[in-house]
Design a protein around this nucleic acid. Structure first.
Lengths: 187, 187
DNA sequence: GTTATTCTACCTATTAATAGGTAGATAGAA
DNA sequence: TTCTATCTACCTATTAATAGGTAGAATAAC
């Protein structure tokens, strides 16, 4: 792993745990044994770093979605696997999704980061929408509203459940919500 | 309005817009024309201020729930009114719920604030649970899972939808999710 | 093949700005 | 007089960011 990657990984964790405005170059510097100026060499400003964090995380997330697609074609199992992704992200340290984290900070962020955050939303929503569509066609799901619209609701709910789990340091708050929502739309 | 209230109101808005670690005593001081030291007089530390913000907001929110109870006894209408509360909070400036905002910052906050944040969750969840219970008894709602558990899911989903609306500066993302979820549980 | 040059990846040292916080003076009200 | 609320005038710590320098690898010129 090269230094730039090391910085991104460390910063991603700090973002997930504390938020964008609650970690500093010094925090990263201390953790990986490198001076703050060296971080500036790789990422001139904190906003550059923020954008790189999101770009990287988004790519990782999308490759996970591809993996799920390759492992199963059952819409119900796909939704469960998607939920598992969230549970895995939360982990034992109650890490929030970087995308959700940056959304609260969105007013203090420049346009390039916003675009990346929105991109993360739309990527996931598009994937969920296609899973829902297939599920509806196969008679597995019953949703009165449009599948594209419901995909947004589903994603937002998962993000919210992550937040809730974080507030109580209670993983069940996430897993139960995922189970409930999947159950609710099943025929 | 006295100064302490003025400070709380100003700080609440700043918290809702930018997050706890993204506003300063100076920001408040500038907005209400008072020195930062005067804010320290009313709220010795930022954490004291944070706790007061949540206490105040929680009380306000609970009185809104009482108002809803007094205005209607129909569970569906109550849920809609609850949703309206969220839409109203979001407003035209896409203000996040202070509780959701502090949840992302939770790792950087002391215990007293955490308790207040969790209290906001449990207050709302308990209210939602009782509305759901009545609705189920009246045959208006159909939820396979326990109403207490589903109340948590509902609240988390609303918070998440708020986040999503904020990310896109799109109020419909919140209102549509509220509508969809209420519709989904109706018989 | 050797020399000259440029690039990479870090360093030390410092900056201007801002953070939260404190001590002590002061003016007015109870 | 004493209390309340505010002020002036600081302090210490931290922030993101920059300047300037260096060892060593890679590349180009001769």
């Amino acid at each position: 792993m090269n230094t730039a990657e090391h910085i991104i990984n460390t910063a991603t964790l700090l973002l997930q745990k504390n938020g964008f405005n609650a970690f500093s170059y010094h925090d990263i510097s201390r953790q990986i044994g490198i001076k703050t100026s060296s971080i500036h060499y790789h990422f001139p400003g904190k906003h550059d770093l923020g954008k790189s964090i999101m770009k990287n995380y988004r790519a990782l997330h999308n490759s996970e979605l591809k993996r799920i697609d390759s492992e199963s074609s059952n819409p119900v199992k796909k939704l469960q696997a998607f939920g598992e992704l969230f549970i895995c992200t939360l982990g034992d340290e109650f890490r929030m999704c970087p995308c959700g984290m940056l959304t609260t900070d969105i007013n203090t962020l420049p346009e390039p980061i916003k675009e990346e955050v929105q991109g993360f939303f739309t990527d996931s929503e598009a994937w969920l929408a296609s899973v829902l569509k297939t599920g509806i066609e196969q008679g597995l799901f019953s949703i009165e509203s449009n599948h594209n619209e419901f995909a947004k609701t589903l994603f937002a709910s998962f993000e919210g459940a992550m937040l809730s789990a974080r507030a109580f340091k209670d993983k069940a708050r996430l897993s139960k919500t995922i189970k409930q929502l999947i159950k609710l739309i099943q025929t």
